[in-house]
Design a protein around this nucleic acid. Sequence first.
DNA 1: AAATCTTTGTACGGTATCTGACATAACCCG
DNA 2: CGGGTTATGTCAGATACCGTACAAAGATTT
Lengths: 237, 237
Amino acid sequence: MRTNGFKNTLLKALDGDIIERLRLQPVKFELNHEIENPGDPIDNLYFLEEGMASMTTTFKDESQVEVGMFGYESVIGVSALMGTKKSLNRVYTQIAGHGYSCRVEDARREFRLGGYFQFLALRYVQAQLVQAMQSAGCNAKHNFEQRLARWLLLCADRANTDTFKISHEFLADMLGGRRPTISTTAGILKRKGLIEYARGEIRILDIPGLTKTSCECYLIIKDHLDNYAEFDTAITA
Amino acid sequence: MRTNGFKNTLLKALDGDIIERLRLQPVKFELNHEIENPGDPIDNLYFLEEGMASMTTTFKDESQVEVGMFGYESVIGVSALMGTKKSLNRVYTQIAGHGYSCRVEDARREFRLGGYFQFLALRYVQAQLVQAMQSAGCNAKHNFEQRLARWLLLCADRANTDTFKISHEFLADMLGGRRPTISTTAGILKRKGLIEYARGEIRILDIPGLTKTSCECYLIIKDHLDNYAEFDTAITA
DNA sequence: AAATCTTTGTACGGTATCTGACATAACCCG
DNA sequence: CGGGTTATGTCAGATACCGTACAAAGATTT
């Protein structure tokens, strides 16, 4: 296993010459930093190394719901490689962190070469598609306890930590529910000893327990986000 | 506007030499024909010309929910171009029709050329992603009346008809609800004069009315599925 | 230390949807 | 024509979640 020091799933898998051509710039992501906003031109791709960002869709009544989560496995703005010029959804930092930016022209040039970068970028888009589809089904069929457990686990995985700062208010937005509903649901998970929290600081205590409480959607999404860069799940050239 | 006789959005936009290289075969799709099944290798792509197919995700309790809809704009199996070898979800015909099949090797070869076929295929994947994300949000926030209206409109658009055969039982599966709930909700739309139906035969009577009853998600998804092949929304090379 | 803001707990009536059951009517088949 | 199947209508009790409101406690500012 070759290693080049990157934590980002995609960057980690790339050779030095490709990395060089991408002309990456280190970036810090503050809490609540808006990475993309609907209508804005996409000028940069971002490869997260640490932290977590959410993509949300905003409805006419101002309410929003999460439709995608980004962590160390992510490439934010890949849709620019799919022929999209302008951002369609809001993307913003939920857990501060850092990563790398890449000019979209550099990424497009590398993508057009049709090599390993293209291969991985497409695999990642596919993983994002699975995430969105599974979420669509999940949101239609599973209750808040299952979905909250799923969200907390995915978040912990993406951010690679068992403790993070998210208020019930934010969680309600992510899951498309009301704050009091989240408070009661989180209270249930707390009483079961699966998590603990206070004033926005959440700690996951029992991952296997939470996984059992959550629906199958967690493992399906996790599997795709964790393994999209693996050879055995892919067409080996 | 050049025209080559195809009704499929993607095929319609391709030049004769590309069409030739894809070595298309005409295919008929019977009602309830299983086009893909989870775990099956993807051997062919399918370009629908008429009819409608649904992609569903099946949960552990055997229930299923629709996560994608395919009509004359569709390429079924594009994920094979994204590096996926095996089908992840069930895809089956809801409205009988016909189209063209294409061996996956031929499609991959053409895709690797990096020309207009690749461009359109990627644009279509992006449209599918938008559909899945918007559905995820919609399923979390909107009620059955809105979502049923959305589904009926999208279905009518995909299949290019205002009359089609779908039972309440099937609709319940698509939307992730129960059959009696659909019956009451459909009854409301009927009493409002927006649709009429009997024993699985549904007819849409008032598209603007249904659109108003539905949520904004309908037009967002429709817009992307209708226009992914347009130049102005894309990066023009 | 007081005032203010943020976060969480909780309660309560209202609504949407579930669950399961039963009835009816249309259609299909022999 | 009669019996079985499929599609729909409907109902009633249970549950999940909404919508709103208010209180309490920790954090932050003055």
